[in-house]
Structure formats: structure tokens, C-alpha cells
């Protein structure tokens, strides 16, 4: 396995559509809930420990070879907002395309055939990590990091926030990302034996409600 493959997959410039998604930050900025680096940090921390952890566990389980269909259904049940399910599938489809071109694999072909409009992005992320020869821990790291770096980058564009402050937020979350990644792998190993029911289901009410409000705006900069 190549460690450098992790850098390729985790690179914010990996062409899988992430740049057009704010992870709920656009809605939170408009609602006045993110106004500066401190509130961005609180937002990212909340996202990390709720939908971020759920996504990381799904990605890690997919990287361990758990059935993508089962994981996709579990992700659906943990994503009540239809706008967020649409966004997750769009990103999953875009990642499927990018990953198939980068690391051709029968498993990625199979998920593309099974989900022509896209599987939930963390499911595909786990399979992409597998195809790249990476581990479940790598998949969890990628998932958790993009879950916080997406909002941070978006807030730089939305608020004109100092990019050094935004990067500082990500650095301050690093220890929590480490812990969450390790826990995600432990959970994913239990999913292998006990099924997707043991996946966490932690939710953040304002992420869901905000995503629905955002999807109804006539004009917006980010897709979600």
C-alpha cells in the first residue's frame, strides 16, 4: 500500500465535487450562527461529532468490505433531510467517477452500476480507499477531515474570514479528528460482525433543518 495514495484521496483538489458544498456553513452563515473563527470552530466541532462521525464509520466499514447496499440504507436512515440525502448521493456519484478513473476497481464499477444516481458519499469514499490500497483508518480520516475542511473553506469565501484563522480552526480540531478516526475504525470492525445497526446515529438538528431551508433558497453559492 502507498501512503501517498492517502494524500491523493484527501487532497481538497481531488476532482470529486466537494468544492461546491459548504457542509451546511452557507445556511449557518445566513442565519447568523457563524460570524467568526470561534463560531466556525463550534460549527465544525458539532458537525465532526454528529454527521461527521456517522459518515466516518460508514466510510471505514465500506473500506473493510461491508456490503455497500446495507451501508447505503443505513446512511439513508441517518439522514432525515432529503436535501442532505440528495447532496450525499450527488457527491457519491461524483466521487465514483473520479475514483474509477483514478483507481479502477470492480467494486467501484459495481457500486456505479447499483447506484447510477450515486450512493451516499461515505460509502463510495470507503470503496475508493479500498481501491487505492488504503485502510479503514485512512478512509475515516479522509471522511472526518473533509467534513470540517469543507465548511472552513466555504466560510473563507462566504464571510471573507481570514484564511489563516480558518486553517487554525482545522489545526485545533486535529486531536478530536484523531480520536474520532480511531473510534470509527473500532465501530466499523463491529459492523463487520454485527451489521449496520451498530453504526452511530448522532444527529445535529440545525444541520438538518438548515439544509432544508438552504435547498429552498432561489439563489445560493453552494450546492449544500
Amino acid at each position: 500500500m502507498s501512503r501517498a495514495a492517502l494524500l491523493v484521496l484527501a487532497d481538497g483538489r481531488f476532482p470529486a465535487g466537494g468544492h461546491a458544498h459548504s457542509g451546511g456553513a452557507e445556511a449557518a452563515v445566513r442565519a447568523g450562527r457563524i460570524t467568526d473563527a470561534a463560531s466556525l470552530e463550534a460549527f465544525c466541532r458539532g458537525r465532526l461529532h454528529t454527521s461527521g462521525v456517522v459518515a466516518a464509520c460508514v466510510a471505514a466499514a465500506a473500506a473493510l468490505g461491508v456490503d455497500p447496499g446495507e451501508l447505503d440504507r443505513a446512511a439513508d436512515a441517518r439522514t432525515p433531510s432529503p436535501a442532505l440525502r440528495v447532496a450525499a448521493r450527488r457527491l457519491g456519484r461524483q466521487l465514483t467517477r473520479a475514483a474509477r478513473a483514478t483507481w479502477p476497481s470492480p467494486e467501484l464499477d459495481a457500486v456505479a452500476a447499483l447506484f447510477p444516481k450515486g450512493a451516499h458519499q461515505p460509502v463510495v469514499l470507503g470503496l475508493a480507499a479500498r481501491a487505492a490500497g488504503l485502510t479503514a483508518l485512512d478512509a475515516a480520516y479522509c471522511s472526518l477531515y473533509e467534513g470540517v475542511s469543507g465548511p472552513a473553506t466555504a466560510v473563507v469565501r462566504l464571510l471573507g474570514l481570514d484564511p489563516f484563522d480558518a486553517t487554525g480552526v482545522l489545526a485545533r480540531l486535529a486531536d478530536e479528528v484523531d480520536r474520532a478516526a480511531r473510534e470509527a475504525v473500532e465501530t466499523a470492525e463491529r459492523v463487520v460482525t454485527d451489521g449496520a445497526g451498530v453504526l452511530p446515529a448522532r444527529s445535529a438538528p440545525l444541520l438538518e433543518i438548515g439544509a432544508e431551508a438552504h435547498a429552498a433558497w432561489p439563489v445560493r453559492l453552494f450546492a449544500s
Binding site: 476532482p15 466537494g18 468544492h19 461546491a20 466555504a154 445560493r220 453559492l221 453552494f222 450546492a223
Partner: peptide
């Protein structure tokens, strides 16, 4: 939607 980066959406990603 391009996340405020139209050139990214037509060229880089």
C-alpha cells in the same frame, strides 16, 4: 452550483 468558484467547476473539478 459552483461554491463561488466557476472556474473550478469548468476546469479543475
Amino acid at each position: 452550483e459552483t461554491g463561488a468558484c466557476p472556474h473550478t467547476a469548468i476546469r479543475d473539478d
